[in-house]
Simulated assay, not measured.
Amino acid sequence: MLLKLIGERLRYLRKINNLTQEELAEKAGINASYIGSVERGDRNISIETLEKIINGLNVTPTEMFQFHEIDSKYSSFENAQLLETINSLLYHRSLEEKKLIYRIIKDILETMDSKID
C-alpha cells in the first residue's frame, strides 16, 4: 500500500514539475525504467534511492509524503490508502483543529448510523 502511495505521489510531483520519467531519472542518477516501476508501485524502493528521487524533483522529504495532494480518483484507493491520505491531511493541523474534526466526523457517523436503524 505504501509503495503505491509513494508511486502515485512521485508521478504527481514529476508531472507538476513538467518532467518526463527520463528527465527525472537523469536528474536523480537512476534508470528511467526504474522510475516507471516505482510510479506503478511495482518496485520496492530503498531510502537511498528515494532520497535521489526527492533531490531530482527538488522537493523536501515532507513534500514527498503529502499524500492528500495526490491527483487521483479516490474511488481507486484501497481502504488503507484512503486512511493514510486522510492522516496526511490532518498531520500539520493543530491539536484543537484535530479535536474539532474528530467531533465533526463523529457526529456525521452517528447521523449516518441512525439513518440505517
Results as ranks from 00 to 15, higher is better:
51 E>W: 11
38 V>E: 03
78 E>Q: 11
58 N>Q: 15
12 Y>I: 05
67 F>E: 09
48 E>K: 10
40 R>S: 13
38 V>H: 00
46 S>H: 09
89 L>Q: 15
91 Y>A: 10
62 T>Q: 13
70 I>P: 02
38 V>P: 05
116 I>D: 12
79 N>R: 12
43 R>N: 13
28 A>T: 12
25 A>G: 03
38 V>N: 02
104 I>W: 06
27 K>V: 05
101 I>S: 10
3 L>M: 09
65 F>G: 09
74 Y>Q: 08
31 N>P: 06
9 R>A: 03
63 E>K: 14
102 Y>E: 15
91 Y>S: 06
78 E>S: 12
3 L>A: 12
112 M>K: 15
99 K>E: 15
36 G>D: 05
57 L>W: 01
92 H>N: 15
74 Y>H: 08
28 A>Y: 10
49 T>G: 01
56 G>E: 08
99 K>F: 04
114 S>W: 04
15 K>P: 00
78 E>M: 08
15 K>Q: 02
60 T>Q: 08
100 L>H: 12
64 M>E: 10
20 T>N: 01
39 E>Y: 01
65 F>S: 04
54 I>T: 13
110 E>N: 11
47 I>S: 04
24 L>A: 01
34 Y>A: 02
54 I>S: 02
61 P>W: 06
32 A>M: 07
37 S>H: 08
114 S>T: 14
